[in-house]
Simulated assay, not measured.
Amino acid sequence: MAGGWARDGAEQEQIESTLEEGVEWARRQLPQGESRHFCEECDEPIPEPRRKALPGVKLCVTCQAEQDKHATRASGYNRRGSKDSQLR
């Protein structure tokens, strides 16, 4: 149930839009092309099962895990319409 100036169903549309954007972002982050045989970072061999499971892979599991720790994504858009969230 929407409140204020929003029409009914607006919250669900915002939730679905956020989810769709997140899925698209994740898909764009997937590697593409031919997999490397050696890691770009540490030059260790990338096992064949990893190369087959993830086409376009460029990093070994260890280096990928380290890179994922530092990867962040901020929306930059306040999808919560509450007054409280806008005051922060």
Rank of each mutant, 00 (worst) to 15 (best):
E24N: 14
T62N: 15
S17Y: 12
A74S: 07
L30G: 08
W5L: 12
P45T: 00
R27Y: 04
E16N: 15
E13P: 04
G3P: 02
V57G: 01
E13D: 15
A74V: 07
A71M: 11
L30V: 02
H37S: 02
D68L: 14
A26E: 11
R36T: 03
G76S: 02
Q14W: 08
L59T: 05
R27N: 09
Q64M: 14
D68V: 07
A6P: 05
S17R: 13
Q14N: 14
R51F: 02
G22T: 01
E66A: 15
K83M: 06
L54N: 00
S85N: 09
S17E: 13
A74R: 09
R51I: 06
H70T: 14
Q67F: 09
L54C: 07
T62D: 15
W25L: 08
C39P: 03
G81Q: 07
C63W: 04
K58G: 01
G22L: 03
V61S: 14
G3W: 11
L87Y: 12
D68T: 05
W25F: 10
G4A: 03
R79F: 08
A74W: 05
A26S: 12
Q32R: 11
I46A: 05
D68Q: 14
K52S: 09
A53G: 09
P55N: 03
A65P: 01
R36K: 08
D8R: 12
A10R: 03
P31L: 00
G33Y: 03
K58T: 13
C42Q: 02
G76I: 00
E11W: 12
K69T: 13
R80F: 09
R73E: 07
A6L: 12
V23D: 10
S17H: 11
R27Q: 11
R80H: 10
A26Q: 11
L87E: 11
R27P: 06
A6N: 15
K52A: 11
L30P: 08
S82K: 04
Q67G: 13
A53Q: 10
S35E: 04
Q12N: 13
E66F: 04
P31G: 03
Q12H: 14
Q29K: 09
T62A: 15
R7K: 11
A53P: 01
V61E: 14
K58Q: 14
E21C: 07
G22I: 03
R88M: 09
E40Q: 12
P55K: 01
P49F: 05
R51N: 04
Q29P: 01
R36V: 05
A2P: 11
E41N: 11
E44M: 06
A6W: 06
G76M: 00
